[in-house]
Structures are given as C-alpha cells and as structure tokens.
Design a protein around this nucleic acid. Structure first.
Lengths: 350, 350
DNA sequence: CGAGCGAGTGGAAACGTTTCCAGTGGCGAG
DNA sequence: CTCGCCACTGGAAACGTTTCCACTCGCTCG
C-alpha cells in the first residue's frame, strides 16, 4: 500500500547516498559492494525508475512517434511494423498516433512535439499544407516525412514515385489488351491524389488512349473501401454506351482499398473481374494478396519506406547536423488474378 | 538558435514571478493585467510548456495506453478507434503499443507502466499467463482488460461470450442445412482459442453432429490469413472420402482472418464458397463486409467493447476505490454470402 | 477607525532523477 | 616519508514545472 519506491528509498535501504545508488544502477563507476547492496535493495523494494523524472533530467524520452491519418489503412500497418522493428533495436519505444483527416490536428500534433513527449517523429501526411511544412521545419525534434514534399523543403524524406507507379499499372493493362482504362482516384487535395492523377494523365497520353483522360477519372471522397465503391458505381454507370454495355474494360485505383471498393461495385453491376473489368490497386498491401480475386497492385514498398524512414530518423538523432536526405523507393508491379485473362483483341466492345 | 523557451523566460519577459506566470497560464487566480502580460510574453516567445516537467510535478501524464498483440488484426483497429473516441473527449492522449506474441514482452510492458509514461492501460492479451495476471493486479496504474480472466481475479474487465458466438455460428449452419461442420481454430494456448473450442464442442454435441468433434478441428499457428490457409488445407484434405469427395460442407473459423485463409484454401482446392463449403468467420471486422464473397461472421462487438473499456478506465481513474466491474458484450451473427446458397442482401440476425 | 478579509503576488520547496564537484582514503612511486 | 594519483563516495545543484506559504495592499464591515 505504500507509495511507489523512489531511488531515495533504495539508497536509504542500501545505506549509501542517492548519488551512489544512481551510479550503481546505471553502471557508472562504483565499487562492487555498492553495486551489490544497491541492486539488492532495489530488487527487494521492487524499485522501478521513473521515466518522467529521468526524461526531464536527461532531456530526452526514448520515445519516437509515428503519425498517420488513418490507422485503418493496412498500408500504415505495414509501415509501422517496419519502423518498429528498426526503432526497437535502438532502445526506443514507438508510439502511434492517429491524427484523423483534419490538417489542423496534424499541425497540432507536430507542434506538441515541443512538449517533450517524443524525441523524434515519422509522419506520413495525406494533406501537406504550407502551414504543416512550416511546423515540420521548425519542429522541436527531428522529423522524417514519408511522402512527397516540394523540392525546396530541407527535410529528411522517404518518397516513392507514385506517378510512375500508375504508369506501370496502365502499361500492364495496355499490354494485357485493355484500352478503355478508367482511373479511380482519392481526394485531389491530398499529395498522393495529385501525383497519381498526374501519373494517370501522362500514361494516358503516352499510350494514346481515348477518350479524353478527364472523362474516365473519378474521385472518391477518401481512401476507403466504401468511398471507392460509391465512386466506382458512378464512374461505371457513366460509361455505359447507348446499348447499356460497359465502355470501360479496366480500372486503376489509387490504392488497394479503393480497388476493393471498385471490385465490389463491379460485382454489384453484374460484371466479372477480370473478364469484363480488370482492376489494379496500389500499395500492394496484405489485403491485395488475400482478396478474392487476388488484386494486381503496384507496390510502393511500404515496409521498405518505413524502414528507411526509421533509419533516417535514427541517423539524424545521432547527428543533428548531417545534411538532409531524400530517399526514393521505386514502385513495382505485382500481378495477380484481377488483371489476368487472355488478352482481349484491341477494339473489342463488350 | 536559442534553446527552447521555458516558463522562466516567459516570467522574465512579462516582468512577473515564475509563480505568477504559471498561475496566469493555468487560469488560476491572477489579475487581468498579469494574465495579459504573461500571455503576450508566452506568445511572443513561442512558449510551449514541457509535458515531462509537468508530468513529474503533477504525478500524471494525461496519456493512456492501449496494448495489443498484433496491430495487423483489424479487430484491434476497430477497438482502438472506439477507445480513442472516448479518451480524446476526456483530454487524454492515446498511445498504442504492439507487444508481439511473446507473453514476456506483455509482462514487461505492464511492469513498465510504473515508469509513469501512462496513467492507465487498456490491454487485450491473447495469452493470459499467471504471471501476467499478477502483474496486471499490481500494476502501477489502473488497467482494464478486454478479454476473459479467471472469475476470481478482481479487475475491470470487458469480455464477450465467444463460446456462445461459436454456438450461433454452428446453429446458423445447421439451420442452413449443413451437417458436416469443421472448425478452424487459432492457437490453443490463447484465451480465445480455448473458449472457442469449448463453444464448438458444446455446439457440436447440442446438435448431435457427427463424426466426433475432435476429428473436424484444426488449429492454425496463429490468427492470421496465411496460417488459416495452411490449416484449412490440412483440414480439408484430411476430410476427403474414399472417392475424393469432400466430407465437410461448412467451416467455422475462430476469426475473420482465419476465415479468409480458409476461403482461399477452399478455392485453391477447386471448391465453391458457399455452394461446396460454407464459411463463417468471427469478429465481424470491416474485412468481413467487403470480402468476396461477403463473409458471414459472428460480431463480438469490438467497437462496443472498446468503448466500454475506455469508459471503465476513465471511471476508475476518477474513482480508484470503486468496485471492479465486469461487462459482458453479447455476440450476434451477421449473415452474408459465404453461408447463403441463394444470394440475399446482407442483414443482421438476432 | 481599526480589525479582518480577500485578491494578488513572489520566494521557495517539491516532484525523482542525473551529474558536477569536492572530498576521503588507500597505495605506489619517488 | 610524503606526494600525488586513483577509485570511490556524498552533498548539492539542476531539469521545468506547480503549489504551498507568507506577505502586501486596498476594502469592507462592525
């Protein structure tokens, strides 16, 4: 029932000074007898050092933070696992914060780092506002951003070329004989949304596809299955020809969740995947592998990005003066059942 | 590049004492002029109070922790969302820790609560060892357990009757005309694994099913899709009759991830779901809703359990002396396509 | 008109550590 | 024998807060 034992109690019981007790427990210079006495006292009292007091004195907390908009997205789970693996090896603890979609909340979180509860931050923001960039640069502790920032910003960054990723998806579909390719994007006020749109428009032009790229794009309300389903229903019903037949034969989705939503929409409309409609996702999350049908997906190397980000953060912590680095992880295509069928002859209308 | 401003700097700039500055910022008694001066000084310096020092002085951190074995399991994501919603409203921050499957790590985590980095803990352990129970009871801060503990343990608890949940699943399958029902369980050294097995054996007996319940059970290495697939392949191939036809017509899985793995296995073996094999999952995660085919699943009310757990924790924090409570959330069955031979829209039963 | 009160203030202690600094004693070298 | 070095120790300061306490001052009330 007594209060939690402090180092003072340990020192008293061991019959040594507070200073010696601290030294003994922390492996600083101390005689073997002192160490033994203090260890015994600590053990018998069940002493556990107070992290708060320690942090205050030492000026750091041995905690790192990982902030994402939506923990529900499996891509972040993968990233988190990778980060945790790296971080744990260095004696840090990882704390995960879900910021929600409100940019103001994200800014708040970054600002609150100055409160000292974490020694560093890995953040993967969907929406990068000017205000957020300002806060990230003046943050009280080192920050590594997973995602794309304007070139001028001097910050450690791990990014991927998701525009090129969309290009891979489109190329794969074209090679598979698809020509009427639609694009299911996430919100355009997000960084991934913007770059993926660019990637789609470029790929569309490069392959000289018709009709105009603009008419085959649809924007979902957010990067979720439900939003993907709704947006895909819109897109697909907009592209029926005069006889009601589908005028699209493939869909690229800006992430796996949207892709899953799209497949749902297709099935609801009585379409077969991949026969009537091929679908490509993006992120290559676990979900893509075990969805039915298996989802062809563009891997953006989430685990790899997480690992890089964590390593960058640790490096910056040990040397605050080192030049900032920008690591780019290249996308790769993982082909699964959702796009694999015998190539349809060009121009065939279904 | 001056150091981070402290309250001392603010007080100096405002021309008041440290004590007054603190009071002014915290809304304690202070003259309007003092408040104005201090506020202005704090603003112009960009002062942000140090959470560590504050915690040390105040004796609490305004952080709560949520510990789970595997953040990759969507059931925990749902729980976490619910918990966060509740605690955020009370001014606490939520910190998520993934302990991994090693019970020793979980024990370590609970023990480390005494370090003062969190004021309370919600924990949902898969494996409940005696050692863990001891640590939970003597934990330095209030703990709420999501899961089942021995009746004698005095701790705030939110549990569900998952044995009864398995019963619902079996009953539903029997009503749908299935008689040869297999059970795909998770590891038997976990609490859910044990109680779900009990539920299955009881239900099996109640419905007078044959053959012996033991022969139709299979245990997966863990609660993941991959392990589910492997175990289901074993189980299904073991139950071919002499002519190679399948001797099972339904499978109950101990969670949704295992169920998804089982469906995979079935498809690989050329079986149709639900025609050849009906599959029921458990947890009714988001995944169940958007999987293809839609997965019939026993909802164990994850969000509800999370909410209850958070509320229990807050209540305990505000009144440490209150008697412990044990809340039980009842399972319900959500029927989807994976058990319905004639496609009907999804709906909730019971 | 004096006592008493309440609002407001500043000094200083405290939270539990780590670490600087000044000692103490023992012991080998000169 | 004495000096200096070394290993070890304890006192005390410090980290940045909050809050207790004592104090002043202007008012009101009896």
């Amino acid at each position: 029932m007594s209060a939690r034992p402090t180092l003072i109690h340990v020192a008293e019981l061991a019959g040594v000074s507070l200073a010696s007790a601290s030294r003994a427990l922390n492996g600083m210079v101390a005689s073997p007898e002192t160490v033994a006495k203090v260890r015994a006292a600590a053990l018998s009292l069940g002493y556990i050092p107070d992290a708060t007091a320690r942090s205050l004195k030492l000026g750091h907390s041995l905690q790192l933070a990982f902030a994402v908009d939506d923990v529900g997205n499996p891509v972040y789970v993968e990233m988190m696992r990778a980060i945790e693996t790296v971080v744990r090896g260095s004696g840090y603890r990882l704390q995960v914060s879900s910021t929600g979609t409100d940019p103001a909340e994200t800014v708040d979180l970054v600002r609150s780092l100055a409160r000292g509860y974490a020694d560093g931050l890995v953040i993967s923001p969907l929406r990068v506002t000017d205000e957020l960039i300002v806060e990230l640069k003046r943050a009280a502790v080192p920050v590594v951003v997973v995602g794309t920032l304007p070139d001028t910003v001097q910050l450690d960054t791990v990014q991927t070329d998701s525009a090129r990723g969309v290009g891979l998806a489109v190329a794969h579909l074209v090679e598979s004989g698809r020509r009427r390719i639609g694009f299911l994007n996430g919100p355009l006020d997000t960084t991934p949304g913007m770059s993926r749109r660019r990637g789609f428009v470029e790929a569309y032009a490069a392959h000289q596809l018709a009709p105009a790229a603009g008419s085959v794009q649809e924007v979902a309300a957010d990067f979720t299955v439900a939003a993907g389903r709704r947006a895909a229903l819109d897109l697909l019903s907009r592209h029926r020809d005069a006889r009601g037949a589908l005028a699209l034969d493939a869909l690229v989705a800006a992430n796996d969740l949207l892709a899953v939503g799209a497949i749902h929409a297709a099935l609801e409309l009585g379409l077969q995947v991949p026969e009537d409609l091929a679908v490509v996702g993006m992120d290559d999350t676990e979900l893509a592998g075990f969805f039915n049908p298996g989802l062809t997906s563009v891997s953006l190397g989430s685990a790899e990005r997480g690992r890089h980000a964590a390593e960058l953060l640790l490096a910056r912590l040990s040397d605050p003066a080192r030049p900032t680095r920008r690591i780019v992880v290249q996308p790769t295509l993982v082909v699964r059942a959702s796009t694999q069928t015998d190539p349809t002859p060009e121009g065939t209308v279904r």
